[in-house]
Amino acid sequence: MNCTIKKFYYGDIPEDNSGSSNQPASNVSANSWPLWEVFIRSKQGLDHKHVGSLHAADATMAIENARDVYTRRQEGVSIWVVESKHITASNPDEAGELYEPAADKIYRHPTFYDLPDEVGHM
């Protein structure tokens, strides 16, 4: 038995301790189903919210799979799917510059304005 046991946890077995066969993954298919992002409206009147992603051959199958994967307990009344490759995301490394213009405009907030109490709720 290996005496220098490294710490590992349930769900995290290091490969060198696992007696794995280390065979290279050979049967990776070039023709695999594309990835879709799934958005669900949990009830009428609320926005669609991103819930995760899944693989499907086409949009119809993506909706059906999304129903099975993300709404088994009536979590949704409407589903949007979009192929992940069509999503453009902002770059977190540029977050500073991107959001900087909003940082010094405190006058955009109602609390910037001091009004006499007599005005009441405004």
Partner: peptide, 8 residues
């Protein structure tokens, strides 16, 4: 499937 990865 190849046995390289582990499961509980």
């Amino acid at each position: 499937l190849s046995g390289k990865a582990k499961y509980s």
